[in-house]
Amino acid sequence: MQGPLTIYVDADACPVKDEVYRVAGRHGVHVVVVANAFLNVPREPWIERVVVSDRLDAADDWIAERAGPQAIVVTADVPLASRCVKAGASVLAPNGKAFTDSSIGMALATRDLMQSLREAGAVTGGPKPFSPKDRSAFLGALDRAVVRLRRHASGA
């Protein structure tokens, strides 16, 4: 038996929390906002705030332990995305890019390469600035993921 569809948000640095609330509210989906510190979230019965310890990866561990086929995880953290994909969850980056079985290996390799370059002193820049186009792509991707999982759960 699968649980209800739930969106888990790795919230500490997530730029699309408001978009998650908008899509979840429209579809009646439970949202769990997970952070290492208190965050304000809308006071809605379908939004749950979870504050974990400030231990390194505490939020990641909490989300990964609950991720499964009826979960959508929103994170930019590639190792967390990998754990959640392996658990069968749908995983979206804040720019709308889906982490999948076929893409997660390359995402991990790229992350590890960039980390090695930074540790060696190479200037690698940072991520490109978050844009309105990224926000729009995320909204569409999250909406499609919710619809797809709902259809799958209903057997349609």
Rank of each mutant, 00 (worst) to 15 (best):
V91C: 09
K133S: 14
V33F: 05
K86I: 00
R66N: 07
F99Y: 15
H30K: 06
A13L: 05
D60H: 05
A93N: 14
W46R: 10
T100D: 05
A89I: 09
K17H: 03
L92R: 06
T110D: 02
D10C: 10
V23D: 00
E119D: 13
A71C: 14
V16R: 07
A89N: 09
S53I: 04
G155F: 09
A13G: 09
V147Q: 13
A13Q: 01
R135Y: 11
L142Y: 08
G68K: 03
V91F: 13
T100G: 06
V74D: 05
S82W: 13
P127C: 11
P94H: 04
G96N: 03
M1Q: 03
I72C: 07
V9M: 06
G140V: 11
H27P: 01
P127R: 15
W62E: 05
K128E: 14
G28N: 04
E44A: 07
L142I: 11
G105I: 02
A37C: 02
G126V: 00
A156S: 14
N95H: 06
A156M: 11
L113E: 12
L113T: 09
P132M: 11
P4Q: 11
A153Y: 00
G121I: 13
N95T: 12
P79T: 10
R118C: 14
L142P: 07
A71H: 08
V52Y: 13
K17R: 15
